[in-house]
Design a binder for these strands. Structure first.
Lengths: 376, 376
DNA sequence: GGGTCACATGAATCGACTC
DNA sequence: GGAGTCGATTCATGTGACC
């Protein structure tokens, strides 16, 4: 993708790779029209927090008789399930239009709407990668004792198609999770306290403001620096704030001019991380590919060196000058020979083959790492 | 509902309340036909673990090249989303037919199918009560490092309609969770070890056997003893095993004769809890009603006794001979006067009003409990 | 200034029975 | 079926007043 130049006149960036598309802006207007107006295939990631279509009737009181301030805003009301489905298909289709083929879509919802969203996006050809559960550490209780505490919301993460080559920063997620694979259930508090935007009367400025921690994880997981992120239902602007801080480009669409203004004021206070290298990703997949043969070229391994294969070194093979191996039973790349000796469909030769270093067996991958370190 | 008599000839029970319907049996055959054949409105709860529309592309291998034994049985392949939707609507409609108006439906699924199931059941008029997340303590890792570890499955709990009077044993769930409301995210291990049924070659007998702990919580939460539970995709029989142990009636439908046989053998080894009182639930809502006036009739409170209202006893009222209260500002029932003094829309007088007992303020509810204990 | 306690509040599809 | 009545029901956090 096109990388933005370092110099930025004012707050608005124009990316060379997207035909001079104006980014880092909030546009007031309809989400669907806004996405349709974007160039086809210009967006790396879309985060959408659409209306949930809650159907509250009557008032709800806490056991101490205070009234619960529920989401009864006009923008969350739909005439019927069918009307909600039409709306959902329309905005998903517009999202598909502006998303790159290798881009991904995130949607958040609750049981009121998420099943309709999930079914619609599958119908449109999106390929679900994960459903992720945001477990709230401090949800509102069920005051009448009639159901389980509604303690989570659901996110769907989807690629544009089954064979998409989407971005997933596996190593960053693993690092965020104490070197264990990041799971599909995330535990985080709701947005409250000083992070929660208030109006001049001290009331919440937006009824459904999302926590920045949630967007942080999403952005780090599924985008790279300078990627373009679009939020078609920007609301209070959490997506844009996190994108700006993490040095991604962004466009926010918001139909309500008051919400847009709240978000603009918020964005003006957000600073991007100073050092661009801090938002660079740690990812083995991103590391430059190094053919095994280069180790031979560069003298890290002399032709004829004996490699030991398998956890106990029970197989052996010798290195040839072109970077292929030869053993008693097979010849070919480090991966092919490893696979054939084991009778396995595939093999990671970098881990399978070892050399003797001062009496110890060490995977040849350490040589690759040494070469990479020199190259950087 | 009709309650089965204590004596049971053999293993099969005939419930008087359901027209002599034969229960506690496994029926081999099509799920949809099986549910259609049940009397309309005869079932208290349905638990369904329908086939997932998994689309494993070729074979999946772990890094050490052992093959992942995925769900690729013939019954789990569907040509298209449309075919899956037809199947889903058909079995859900059949479930609706046999479910009581006040019965509930549980469905479990993963992101492959749960959005389609959820949307279909909403289309059919089911009213979602909760989506519940089963967080697996020991999920299968993501071997390719291309997604988040898929560490949960989703359950939908739904009533037949919006105004259903469904069963929810709130106090039992709260008791199960250290006296805090049970949340919508449940943490449990997958079914493994000695609980996992094996065939004679030591391989798992069923690919998607559910843990009994999961069904235990579901059954305790949403049914009462002697309720009729139907599982239209019985598989290895976990639902029936838990239902039998907890003294619920049950019917299992299973298309595969081999699975049905496995489940039959399993059920033969399951014993119901000996003492029926152990599966009785404590429920405040179902306790016999006692009018406040009866405390006066029975001499627990003399007319003229002073009651103290509110957490600090800041209000007072006196008891009249007919069981109404009179204060400086209001008269009426314990609830009416409590609500009026607080300026609240409603009030539970049993908790609001207190009496002096040896210098301590005690809610008048303790007198009600004393009277209830005498009556039993 | 520190500790305690009261109070506020959050995407909520939040009764049942009698007359 | 509508109105009236009984009576069951909350957890985690942050803030601010008050010792």
């Amino acid at each position: 993708m096109g990388v933005t130049s370092g110099s930025r006149p004012g707050n608005i960036r124009r990316a060379s790779g997207t035909g001079g598309l104006e980014t880092d802006v909030i546009r007031v207007g309809d989400s669907i029209e806004g996405m349709r107006a974007l160039p086809a295939g210009s967006v790396d990631m879309i985060f959408a927090d659409p209306p949930y279509n809650l159907q509250l009737d009557g008032e709800l009181h806490r056991p101490n008789n205070t009234r619960v301030d529920g989401v009864d805003d006009e923008w969350d009301q739909f005439e019927s399930l069918q009307a909600y489905d039409r709306f959902t298909r329309d905005w998903l289709a517009a999202a598909r239009h502006c998303l790159k083929d290798d881009g991904t879509l995130w949607v958040i919802g609750s049981y009121h709407n998420i099943f309709r969203v999930g079914a619609s996006l599958q119908d449109l050809g999106f390929w679900i990668l994960n459903d992720v559960v945001w477990r709230k550490s401090n949800p509102m209780p069920n005051f009448r004792g009639r159901r389980f505490t509604n303690a989570h919301e659901t996110l769907i993460w989807a690629a544009k198609s089954k064979d998409s080559r989407y971005t997933f920063n596996y190593q960053s997620m693993k690092a965020l999770n104490d070197d264990l694979q990041m799971r599909s259930d995330w535990y985080m508090p709701i947005c409250a306290g000083s992070e929660r935007l208030k109006d001049k009367d001290g009331r919440k400025a937006h009824p459904t403001q999302k926590p920045e921690a949630l967007l942080h994880r999403i952005v780090v997981a599924s985008t790279r620096p300078d990627d373009l992120i679009v939020d078609p239902f920007l609301g209070s602007g959490t997506t844009a704030a996190v994108a700006k801080r993490l040095r991604r480009r962004w466009i926010g669409l918001e139909a309500d001019a008051e919400y847009a203004e709240i978000a603009r004021e918020r964005l003006a206070r957000v600073r991007a991380v100073d050092d661009p290298t801090l938002v660079q990703l740690e990812s083995r997949r991103e590391a430059p590919r190094i053919p095994f043969g280069r180790l031979v070229e560069r003298g890290f391994l002399a032709p004829g060196t004996v490699l030991y294969g398998g956890p106990k070194g029970q197989w052996t093979a010798r290195v040839r000058a072109d970077g292929t191996l030869v053993s008693a039973e097979a010849k070919g790349s480090i991966h092919q020979v490893g696979a054939q000796l084991q009778g396995a469909p595939s093999c990671n030769g970098w881990q399978f083959w070892q050399i003797d270093v001062e009496g110890n067996r060490v995977p040849i991958d350490v040589l690759r790492q040494k070469l990479r370190a020199e190259t950087n």
